[in-house]
Design a protein around this nucleic acid. Sequence first.
DNA 1: TAACTACATGCGTATATACTTATATACTTG
DNA 2: CAAGTATATAAGTATATACGCATGTAGTTA
Lengths: 112, 112
Amino acid sequence: MAKKFTSSLSEEALLLVAGRFAVLGEPMRLRLIQHLFAGEMNVSQLVDATGGTQANVSRHLHTLTAAQIITRRKEGLQVYYRISDPTIPQLCNLVCGSMEQQLTRQASAFGP
Amino acid sequence: MAKKFTSSLSEEALLLVAGRFAVLGEPMRLRLIQHLFAGEMNVSQLVDATGGTQANVSRHLHTLTAAQIITRRKEGLQVYYRISDPTIPQLCNLVCGSMEQQLTRQASAFGP
DNA sequence: TAACTACATGCGTATATACTTATATACTTG
DNA sequence: CAAGTATATAAGTATATACGCATGTAGTTA
């Protein structure tokens, strides 16, 4: 059984969890993740898809890889990345739904 | 039906989602959230519980309130905060479980 | 081997933000 | 009203990090 965050956690574990949230807290990284939901892509494809510079995309991919959110697969000259952590889509959808609900509720405060 | 992050999202929505992750990406804020899982607490109690300064705790509580993760209830001289977004515990536990699994897998790479 | 392509990385700069100190505000009580 | 308490905020500093530019490295092809 997995240890639950809600029932007290060591400071060290808390820092790890915060680190993971922080990794997901950058728009460019989230953009990369979003594109990777469609399936495996190489760096050039991600550069085109996101409109970022090659250097910046590469760096963020490194960060995501270090966080074990995505994995690297080298094929000749290209490097393909894909999402390796199955909780990432759940996580994103959970947040997305929560945000939508918040905004809907706020919007309804201005009328029916 | 809530819009899913996994099926393409507007840039604006993506920024909002990133912002929420970023809010959860600070250790002190996560520490406050963790203590609030036990129930409603006022600022002084949170200062004691976390060991932070009053000013810093107050600022982070403001950030969490702005993100609609917690709500403020003023009672006389004290201000009580509590978690208002029900997805927060789910979110934290999801990440926590994922981290644990990662580390367990890594640990097992060093032998049985 | 030379030239080329895809990706990674070192370094500098700009910017965001966490934290501290000091002070302000809001409420209570004498 | 004065003094005290709980919380918020303003201003300054320190630090982290995202980004751009330049360059390095790995692999391919001529």
